[in-house]
Design a binder for these strands. Structure first.
Length: 960
RNA sequence: GCCCAGGUGGCGGAAUUGGUAGACGCAGCAGACUCAAAAUCUGCCGUUCGCAAGAUCGUGCUGGUUCGAUUCCAGUCCUGGGCACCA
């Protein structure tokens, strides 16, 4: 048992109602029970109060359970929810679980336990941990993405996406039936109505597939031949599989995608209407990556290439944002996956290109982009022709150009682009300088300010102007056009996995046929083995009886084969905020009347790690639902608050190499040591609990120690061993079981109480900031709550609060606190709010104030932060109802008016003294007063000041 | 590599709009109470110099703007998050 535990268990004397000591265990249990039994957190969809929706990011219930890092955002949202409730709002503050996912399946592969079973257990653990902290969730609204009642609607929403297309004139989603009607009556740019009607069913479906918002196409996956499976990026480490270390390569497979690119512009525009941090918006803008440029076609030579004789002349289409630099193009680079590569490579270069392609296949996209220092590439043997000066430009292939962006081909301008420059230098490609002295030959200069040289008809033009001139010329010649491009790609929406939503799709004659709505949910069938199916398909491909549609399943789909991949983690999390509003509805995903009432999420709290993934997907889904008239708004989250990460603070012990002796941190430099992680739960601050350490692992049972003062443990008697200090090293790193630096919130709630735990998490620092966890400081917060308790109760005398009239000084303390707590809570500055409570209680204790008139409003202020103690003391003051529905005290500014202020007086900006002056003095009077001051006179040394700066209510500065 | 964020005492942090740097808490030191301990209370607590009064330096680093910069600008170093199949 550690020292701190002894300290806090010493005060748990049994106490009756209105006990004399702060018995947090009894108090928290009592009120949690009552709140639960009386359904104090139930939220109605029907209320005359204004609504407020506070949402936490959906947790994935991992097997490790919650550690103290997870609840940070939940506590913040809980405080804000309770605060809004006290302010008279009907507050929706739900919680649920994003319970499909890779880790459960991985665990199943390793242990054979069904993911449904482990998920159920994990959720139970999470819920018990969350309840211990005292959150005000309405658990009747809980949702779980792996529950068929939930994923029925995920599948239904997928079908809405499948059955919709993005209309480019209306700029919104429309039912695909409208597109079909258009094709039948008017045709399209590519075919007439008659041609459309003559197309085969398959041809028609292929055309429609190119417009559906959820569509099937070919995409690249991480393929691991040895495991016979597709791997997540997470499962690939340094180009080999995490399991087994087998080689991984790219492989093209049929995949489902969401056409998020269609919404690129609206996702950008929508950012103007939401309250996210600027950096968050910036990350999303960069992810979408809108750029304006041009596509330009280059003729190739030899052409027709040797491989394609008799076919049409091949052209190389590149995308560039800098058409003004077209005379500086010294080579072309096409992506290794580019379709032209097989057609233009000359026989002499074939072997070299093949080798290079093989190399690239083994490289991840990240590696390809990240390693700017090592230049790789291969010449194809072909040349492009510059349309303006006829120059022959060698065509290379290199991994730094990706197939998915632009046209998968670039024109390289080494004098203006650093990567192109490094490439040219590495392969000895001559560099053309079109920007004169702006280019120094040492590195590229991406300027837009230069006057163009060596640039034919663009000579003498500033680059900024030349961009438009060049594009106009290109369009005039019919060799290219203006083009807006997005870095964002359509979102891959299938996984070759088991533990996810099955697609409500049957493939028949190579056509994807959606299931009928009445056949939803398509249940995830039970499997006994979680290994991959044949040909890289997911485990579902092994279930013959499920896979093939039989007559009794559906007469119309007989002979069809079900889609075997499942949906990704973000399917369920893209719309869960809607289901919380109407969680038990079995007619629709969420009744329109209900979503109209709750409307947008007013406050969404979560980490920046979701900046681009989850947030963009759910924003897209919301826009689609809005376009289809299923909800009434097209941005899901009105305001987003990003919580920081809590890092682990690891403790290190130092073992002397080759021995079982451990040396204290201060002495470790004198020995050759191996640093080892030690469980932070057996260290008090930095001081190791020697006995606990010996019990921690068998190999440490006989450990010996060299203590901080140099004493050796063998020379100590058992008694004196207790006084010896072994100091651990400290390392800040990720909070993880691996480093033994995780702390279970339940342990802290047991030891100090939920109220202390909640306030301490907030006290650690700004909710947006990342910071290391250190349990040590929690005692300060616990002392504060005990001190608060003692304003009401005395350990010996019992009740000491009174109904005496408050003094002006006491009212001033209270109202200063009301003002500050309200301001701080509104701006989510919960750490300073906790400080403010401490200051208030310190001041009231100094004033020996035990008056109900002051203490009662203070309890209401405290309720969002420490609900249990607030409720307990509230009842002790004689209140019948719960404090959860008290009304927030009003701040009275009249009580805080001051008539004078102590002004800091600086000389040349450095603080030298201070003077107390009436608050409403004017410049002239202040100058007179300041010049009378001795300290100012000393610094003036007889000379007149140059200037006296006086900022009312702030400061005074004398300039010499 | 690219995008985003952050660097303030021994530690977590405060300073809300450019105006008293270090609130509040932890740790530490000294003292009161106690047979003793716990609990509680009081005082001290950035650096250097000084008996003191006071001065000096000080918010990652180098510059700049300003009467005045933790706050604004330029550059730079370090740390954390993300980079499309972890969620």
């Amino acid at each position: 048992m550690s020292k701190e535990e002894k300290n806090t268990t010493g005060n748990t004397a049994p106490s009756g109602v209105g006990g004399m000591e702060y018995d947090f265990r009894q108090i928290e249990e009592r009120w949690q029970k009552e709140w639960k039994e009386k359904k104090r957190y139930a939220v109605s969809n029907d209320s005359s109060k204004p609504k407020y929706y506070v949402l936490d990011m959906f947790p994935y219930p991992s097997g490790a359970g919650l550690h103290v890092g997870h609840p940070l955002g939940y506590i913040a949202s809980d405080i804000y929810s309770r605060y809004k409730r006290l302010k008279g709002f009907n507050v929706l503050h739900p919680m649920g679980f994003d319970s499909f996912g890779l880790p459960a399946e991985q665990y199943a592969l390793e242990t054979g336990q069904h993911p449904a079973e482990t998920t159920r257990k994990n959720i139970a653990t999470f819920k018990s941990q969350l309840d211990k902290i005292g959150f005000c969730y309405d658990w009747d609204r809980e949702v779980q993405t792996s529950d068929p009642n939930y994923y029925k609607w995920t599948q239904w929403l997928f079908l809405q996406l499948f059955n919709s297309y993005f209309c480019n004139t209306q700029k919104k989603a429309r039912p695909i039936s409208e597109l079909v009607k258009k094709y039948e009556t008017k045709g399209s740019r590519h075919f007439t109505a008659e041609q459309w009607k003559a197309f085969s069913k398959k041809e028609q479906e292929d055309i429609l597939m190119q417009r559906r918002l959820a569509f099937s196409a070919y995409g690249e996956v991480n393929w691991c031949e040895a495991l016979g499976t597709v791997l997540a990026n997470d499962e690939v480490v340094n180009g080999v599989s995490e399991r087994g270390g087998f080689p991984v390569e790219k492989r093209r497979m049929r995949q489902w995608f969401l056409r998020i690119t269609a919404y690129a512009d609206r996702l950008l525009e929508g950012l103007e209407t939401v309250d996210f941090s600027d950096s968050m918006k910036e990350m999303q803008r960069n992810w979408i990556g809108k750029s304006e440029g041009a596509e330009i076609e280059f003729n190739l030579t030899p052409n027709p290439s040797p491989r394609e004789e008799g076919s049409d002349a091949l052209k190389l289409k590149v995308y560039t944002t800098r058409p003004d630099t077209i005379f500086g193009v010294d080579f072309m680079v096409i992506a290794p996956e580019h379709e032209l590569i097989g057609k233009i490579t000359t026989p002499e270069q074939q072997t070299a290109v093949n080798d290079y392609l093989k190399y690239v296949k083994s490289r991840s996209e990240r590696e390809r982009l990240a390693e700017a220092k090592t230049v790789t590439g291969c010449f194809t043997g072909a040349y492009a022709i510059n349309p303006f000066d006829g120059r022959k430009i060698p065509v290379w292939t290199a991994e730094y150009v990706l197939a998915g962006y632009g046209t998968g081909a670039i024109m390289a301008v080494p004098c203006g682009d650093q990567r192109d420059f490094l490439f040219a230098t590495h392969f000895n490609i001559p560099i053309t300088n079109i920007i004169g002295t702006h280019f120094n030959g040492e590195e590229a200069n991406p300027t837009k300010e230069a006057i163009l040289e060596n640039s034919g008809f663009l000579n003498g033009l500033p680059m900024k102007e030349a961009i438009a001139v060049a594009v106009n010329k290109v369009e005039e010649l019919g060799i290219g056009k203006r083009k807006v491009n997005y870095k964002m790609r359509d979102a891959g929406f299938s996984r070759q996995r088991y533990w996810g939503e099955p697609f409500p799709i049957v493939w028949k004659d190579d056509i994807a046929i959606p299931l009928d709505e009445k056949d939803l949910p398509l249940q995830l069938p039970h499997v006994d083995k979680y290994g991959p199916g044949p040909n890289g398909e997911g485990p579902l491909a092994n279930l013959k009886e499920w896979l093939n549609v039989l007559p009794e399943m559906s007469p119309t789909l007989v002979g069809g084969r079900r889609e075997t991949s499942t949906m990704p983690g973000y399917a369920g999390s893209s719309w869960y905020f809607l289901r919380y509003m109407d969680p038990h509805n079995n007619q629709t995903f969420c009744d329109r009347k209900v979503s109209d009432y709750w409307n947008q999420v007013d406050l969404y709290i979560g980490g920046t790690e979701h900046a681009v993934g989850h947030l963009l997907y759910s924003r897209m889904w919301t826009k689609v639902l809005f376009d289809l008239g299923l909800i009434g708004y097209d941005e899901p989250f009105k305001r987003l608050l990003n919580q920081g990460m809590i890092q682990g603070s690891s403790r290190i012990v130092y073992r002397i190499a080759g021995t079982n002796q451990f040396v204290s941190a201060g002495k470790q430099s004198e020995y050759e040591v191996q640093p080892l992680h030690v469980d932070v739960n057996i260290v008090d601050g930095v001081q190791l609990d020697i006995e606990a350490f010996k019990k921690w692992k068998p190999e440490f049972a006989d450990a010996e120690f060299i203590f901080e003062d140099g004493t050796f443990s063998l020379s100590c008697s058992t008694g004196s061993l207790k006084d010896m200090k072994y100091i651990c090293g400290v390392e800040t790193e990720k909070m993880s079981k691996r480093y033994f630096n995780t702390v279970d919130p339940r342990v802290l709630c047991d030891k100090y109480g939920a109220d202390t735990f909640r306030m301490y998490e907030m006290f650690l620092g700004p909710v947006e900031a990342s910071k290391p966890w250190d349990t040590k400081g929690i005692e300060g917060v616990h002392r504060f709550l005990r001190k608060l308790w003692r304003l009401f109760n005395d350990d010996v005398k019992g009740k000491i609060w009174t109904t005496e009239k408050a003094t002006d000084a006491e009212l001033k303390v209270l109202h200063r606190t009301i003002k500050k707590i309200e301001e701080d809570t509104e701006r989510f500055s919960f750490n300073t709010a906790v400080s403010t409570f401490m200051i208030c209680v310190n001041e009231l204790a100094d004033l020996k104030c035990n008056k109900k008139e002051i203490l009662e409003p203070l309890l209401i202020l405290l309720t969002p932060y420490a609900p249990h103690i607030a409720e307990e003391l509230w009842r002790q003051l004689g209140n019948e109802g719960s404090i959860l529905d008290a009304s927030y005290p009003a701040f009275n500014p009249a009580l805080l008016v001051e008539s004078s202020k102590e002004y800091p007086v600086s000389v040349n900006g450095k603080l030298r003294t201070s003077i107390t002056l009436p608050i409403d003095l004017e410049q002239k009077q202040v100058e007179e007063e300041v010049l009378k001051n001795d300290v100012v006179q000393k610094w003036l040394d007889g000379k007149p000041p140059k200037k006296i700066i006086y900022v009312k209510n702030k400061m005074i500065n004398v300039v010499l």
